[in-house]
Amino acid sequence: MRALLPHPLLTPILAAVWLLLNNSFSLGHILLGLLLGWFIPWFTLRFWPQRVCIRRPLILLRFIVVLLSDIVLANLAVARRILGRPAQLRPAFVIVPLSLETDLAISLLANTICLTPGTVSACLSPDRRTLLVHALHAPDTDTLVATIKARYEAPLKEVFESC
């Protein structure tokens, strides 16, 4: 089983991408998509030997919903900051200590930070313990770190690191 289907999650995702790319949902395309979804992970197995495991899909779902609403709200906030007076901005570098350990969770957290409230993850320390984050407007850096840890890091840790 493990040798035949190395990444069970990747197969339906690749099949869905194939269907979207063709913009067609006929039986032939579904079969071809599933075939590609099986063949590509098997063929490229040596590039990602680690198997991704997801625990508690409900928390993941809630995380995605929170993330999407945060993206919209954060964009409106950033738009207001851009239109306001530039002199009022208080940009700051913030150091976020990480409690995540796997590569996948850390890169997902860095991507999440880049997508949301006026923050960009700038640099990961070589020991993977801290992340440098630049914030567009952060008068209170401690609150920002606490928000990132509670809102994004905690669910990611629960979903991707509990197995």
Binding site: I71, A74, N75, V78, I82, P86, C114, L115, G118, H134
Partner: peptide, 19 residues
């Protein structure tokens, strides 16, 4: 075009253009 240093400029395009 408007903000003052590179790091603040980074925020505008990368997020606003995505949305």
């Amino acid at each position: 075009a408007r903000l003052q240093d590179f790091y603040t400029r980074l925020h505008g395009p990368t997020k606003a253009t995505t949305l």
